[in-house]
Design a binder for these strands. Structure first.
Lengths: 215, 215, 215, 215
DNA sequence: TATGAATGAGGCTTCATTCAT
DNA sequence: AATGAATGAAGCCTCATTCAT
């Protein structure tokens, strides 16, 4: 009964606003619980934390992996924004790299990537898109730093991405974030190892974007 | 050359030999599966891989955590041996450190420590003993390297242990060991960051043995 | 005759009605199976008898003991009601006692109390509440009968409660209720032993409520 | 190599002595554990308590029920002996009955009969033989007491046997024997109910031996 | 659309029983 | 004959997912 366009539009828009809010609350709750309690948290717990029924989660995300993907992508997107900010703000290219690395750790990127289970489709378009965006930005940052002679030339995008992910993961069987104190120390040590001039020869070859993607 | 040991001795030893062989096969299978598929592998799968019935696993290890503990301890012990070897063989103290770090990674120490689940008793005597042995050795290696002016003085045992564990873990949702190629690159970069002179100031404080243990 | 109750009210009430029905079916099925086959019946069998999935049982009762508790409490409550009825209806105090005893047996109280397993929390508030209610009523009945000179004075609440429970249990390895024929005979014999005047001296001391609870 | 008869005989007899000793230790251990921890104790625990390997239990008793049967029969036999003693020693027939009842309770007959599981063959010849022996003796005792006008005439063998069994069982979810204090009180009360003259009319009919066996 | 309830598959663990020494 | 070890069949419980309101 579309009597009048305007009110009808309201009718259609209002519920969508609620639904979107729900969806966002679910993603936020999932991110928190994944970060705090690891990737095994039951969906029902996420729903409870989000303040919705469990079935509402499934309405928004067909299965568990879809929810995980959404969370991971959203974190990657925020990380990309951090990289863009670092690029824009820092005069020195290596300083930009450092800012980005620590910002990525604060996004818990390390805690969230591991959520990817064995059934998870690593090649899902959304995931690929988010990852590539981050990769391109990192490549940009690293390229500038290398050009400025501040970053050793024998490292690649993959080296940095994996190291940041690993070092910022909750260490070992730790449920929570207690490790925060360490994380930035370890990242700083790693960054010091990245500076030019290189202090040793690296085994293997630099991991480029292409190689990362081949996996 | 036991030409004529008493038959009685054989009688007592023989059955135990089979059982020990089984126990070792179980531990080996568990280590492989934990490394390849993460800490969540069903015990029944471990049993299948070991070629025994599931109950045989439980006969040898009262519950899942006991099996995990055995695997973790055995890996730590091998790591400790690697550290002793590095101490004995290397003239240069930092070189010893490098040898030890790469050897520890080859032991998959990073893949195995995370097995420690939330129900796991971090303070079990066996586990504590193995861990302390490793810690003492690392402290010895690092102390020598610092004394030789090769290792930056603002790092502690905990920094190294956690970094090695994290960097040598199977990265992210990776089931298997594909990451091996990266691991030694990343460790080498981290080691370069550890060299003296320090290239930056580290946030926080060095993690000593005592602090590690307090957690 | 709810001609036009609000539809909203229906919406809220309806689903709960189904769930409640399920819950009651589970309790009823559990009671039957416990009575017929003893306290060891698999939960899955109870679920099957109730016509629900096993997980539905666990949704309603977090673990086996919770289900057992519910059944035991419901039986105790019905027994208490029988005691109240006996108190209200019978002019003669000993007759009231007899009525109550036979009614309790008909409730299968003897078959159900033994369900209390070793892991069972004997001090759970619900259980304590139901038990105390029964105890107080029995004390009331026995007190009156003693005052009327119909009940020997050297017996206590505990004597009666335990005797009724034991005598009304399914005898020995009997799966089912075949023993019903005996039960009321045995209870009647026991009741005859309770009458004043006492025909012998009893060993030990009367078991009061307090002593029962101390155990 | 039967060189000489005498030594050979020794050879054959000696091991049998050991085996018999083992068998007896197993039965004794089983009885203790059944009494203390209920009918669910694992066979391996019985074996440990007996100080033998589990397989030795199975060598002597093909399956669990066979062990249970042996224990039950041995207890019944001892109970029969108690009945014979009571018959021989007591001048008064009802006093003999009382002695027998309390002696049977001390044999834990109530704790052991319930071991009879649902898979148990109630009609096994050994079991039937032991039971009939007890029944005949009880009938003898009761017959004399009735003839002496000390036992009410409307009770049967089955009434007594079942009541003794039930009243001497460990009450409810009790692992152990704590109930001992009550047992003899309750039995005494029941015995008082058995005395002539009868204080009430019993429902149903006296349970004779034949009826017991028909079940 | 949102929800609570229902489901079935699967993991951990125990135990009666059998096998190999 | 005696033993320790091995086995597989259950039972309990959890959780991803689907249904019915």
């Amino acid at each position: 009964m579309p009597a009048a366009t305007a009110p009808a539009e309201r009718k259609v828009t209002r519920p969508r606003a609620d639904a979107l809010r729900n969806r966002e609350r679910i993603v936020a709750a999932a991110r928190e619980m994944f970060v705090e309690h690891g990737p095994e948290v039951p969906i029902d717990e996420v729903a409870r934390r989000a303040g919705v029924g469990n079935a509402t989660v499934y309405r928004n995300f067909p299965d568990r992996d879809a929810l995980v993907r959404e969370v991971v992508c959203s974190v990657m997107d925020r990380t990309a924004e951090a990289a863009e900010l670092a690029l824009a703000e820092s005069g020195d290219a290596f300083t930009a790299l450092e800012h980005f690395v620590h910002a990525a750790a604060d996004e818990r990127i390390g805690a969230l990537c591991p959520m990817v289970s064995s059934t998870f489709d690593q090649h899902h378009p959304d995931l690929v898109a988010s990852r590539e965006r981050v990769e391109r930005l990192i490549e940009e940052v690293m390229g500038r730093a290398k050009a400025a002679g501040r970053l050793r030339p024998d490292v690649g995008v993959g080296d940095l991405m994996i190291a940041v992910g690993q070092l910022s993961r909750p260490p070992a069987g730790t449920d929570c974030l207690r490790g925060d104190r360490f994380v930035h120390r370890l990242l700083q040590l790693f960054l010091d190892g990245l500076r030019a001039p290189a202090r040793s020869a690296l085994p293997g070859e630099a991991l480029s974007i292409r190689e990362l993607r081949a996996s």
